[in-house]
Design a protein around this nucleic acid. Structure first.
Length: 431
RNA sequence: GCUGAGAUAGUGUAGCCUGGCAGCAUAUGGGACUGUGGAUCCUCUGGCCCGGGUUCAAAUCCCGGUCUCGGCCCCA
């Protein structure tokens, strides 16, 4: 017997039904904002990813050499491919461009709850504008994705890298120290940060200012408190004003419950200004469900400088969070299961099934020639809304004996009326 | 990469400590029941993760591997 490779999953029809349902909600939501879907290859040149994230990530990727000696890798995420696509083919389209994608990604990591070696990402990229309004819309859309999915308990954290970076730049930290400082901030290792700053000759006043900046977490009211910083650091006026505007638009868009956290750093250094993440606390160690912000990758890939922002959400984690929350998914139901009573009835039954299927109904029929009782039991186990029985009586008068499997009521329906009868049934059952 | 727990029919489990015919529930197939589902009863099929060791004898004890579930590391 051959087992499933580690960190991969099989999905039953019921699971795929849920995944399709969630995906339809996500697609519908971003499309309502004017986003269009793109398709991307499952593997790329290894260089695409090392260029983006450094050679260190090779250890966490499925990379291989093909028969012609090319160094390739299964995609670990989709932003890099999107940016490559943009640089290759999309640079001359009208801006801004709103793109979204959904696809499987691969990472060679140790599987655990909410983390698999093959997993699915849904994401968007916004190319060609960096107005505060556009960034607010991006965040608002991410929140709307959670709401429309049915997720109740989640938290939005928003950070703004330029604020910290401006203050850090004033210190005159060498680039290497700046990078490790950001890492320490991301890890919330305040003591380590303090030591690093002092080692680099930062004054006590600056250190305490930075630490107080990191302390800034909380609601929208913190924006006013930050105004005090502007007196000491005039360079902050521009980023602070932009950050304020983003938050302002967010409130206008109906998003007023968010947490401002200047310590949100999001790992790598191609993130530039505004960054955000959404987490679902119920998920434990792998609680981050969505993350994104402003970044700069296009020049790195050889394109003209352009404003880019976006986010990706972990499809599997979102689904897991919904399941943990007890969300009830609406299952696709078979509309009608047809049972021919005797072999003589099969031809008529097949004809009925065919015309109903053409009308867009979900119809199955007894294919094994079992008796009516057995066939009904099977139809019941399929979850069919109705079972239709066809015997000599029905065949001779162009009827179907339709039994409502919920109420148990049965009536003879003329073949010509079946389509409307079943559609009515489907609509009333699913409201 | 570190660390803890675990793996027994399709699914869920008992047995393991203290070695001695692998049991139960449920699902699937067949039947009771040849024009009416969910119930009941009977019945067939189906299993000790893989490899090695100890032993007269291993699901059980020992070693290695694989996989799963957690907690870290990482998380583009």
């Amino acid at each position: 017997m051959i087992s499933r490779p580690r960190g991969t999953r099989d999905f039953t029809p019921e699971e795929m039904d849920r995944r399709d349902h969630l995906l339809a909600v996500l697609k519908g939501t971003v499309e309502s904002f004017g986003y269009g879907e793109i398709g991307l290859p499952a593997f790329e040149h290894l260089d695409l990813f090392t260029l983006r994230s450094g050679p260190g990530i090779i250890g966490q990727m499925y990379n291989f050499t093909d028969k012609n000696g090319r160094n390739l890798a299964l995609r670990p995420e989709l932003t890099a491919s999107t940016m490559r696509f943009y640089v290759n083919n999309l640079q001359n389209r009208p801006k801004p461009q709103k793109l979204y994608y959904f696809g499987n990604c691969f990472r060679y990591e140790r599987p655990q709850k909410g983390r698999f070696r093959e997993f699915w990402q849904f994401g968007v990229e916004f190319i060609g504008s960096s107005t505060s309004l556009a960034l607010a819309e991006l965040i608002a859309m991410a929140v709307k994705l959670m709401d429309r999915s049915g997720l109740r308990d989640f938290q939005l954290n928003i950070g703004y890298l330029d604020i910290l970076r401006t203050v850090m730049a004033k210190i005159g930290l060498p680039t290497s120290a700046l990078a490790s400082a950001l890492v320490l901030i991301d890890k919330k290792n305040i003591e380590g940060l303090e030591d690093l700053l002092y080692e680099n000759g930062t004054s006590a006043k600056l250190v305490s200012d930075i630490l107080s900046l990191l302390d800034v977490t909380g609601g929208i009211e913190l924006l006013e408190e930050m105004e005090g910083m502007e007196r000491d650091y005039p360079e902050l006026a521009v980023p602070l004003e932009r950050f304020r505007k983003i938050c302002h638009w967010l409130v206008i868009m109906g998003i007023d419950k968010f947490n401002i956290d200047l310590g949100v750093v999001r790992g790598l250094d191609y993130y530039t200004g505004m960054v955000f993440e959404i987490e679902a606390p119920m998920l434990g160690a792998e609680k981050q469900i969505c993350g994104g912000g402003e970044y700069s990758l296009v020049p790195l890939f050889g394109g003209r400088e352009v404003a880019t922002s976006g986010f990706a959400l972990g499809f599997d984690r979102l689904l897991l969070a919904l399941e943990n929350q007890g969300y009830v998914f609406r299952a696709k139901r078979l509309d009608l299961f047809l049972v021919p009573v005797s072999p003589d009835d099969i031809q008529y039954t097949v004809g009925v099934a065919n015309s109903l299927r053409t009308a867009g109904l979900r119809v199955d029929l007894e294919l094994r020639g079992r008796n009516v009782k057995k066939a009904m039991k099977y139809g019941n186990s399929l979850g069919a809304a109705y079972v239709g029985i066809i015997g000599e009586n029905e065949r001779n008068r162009s009827l179907v004996a339709v039994k409502d499997m919920n109420s148990g009521e049965q009536k003879s329906v003329p073949e010509a009326d079946l389509v409307s009868y079943l559609w009515e049934g489907r609509n009333s059952l699913q409201t």
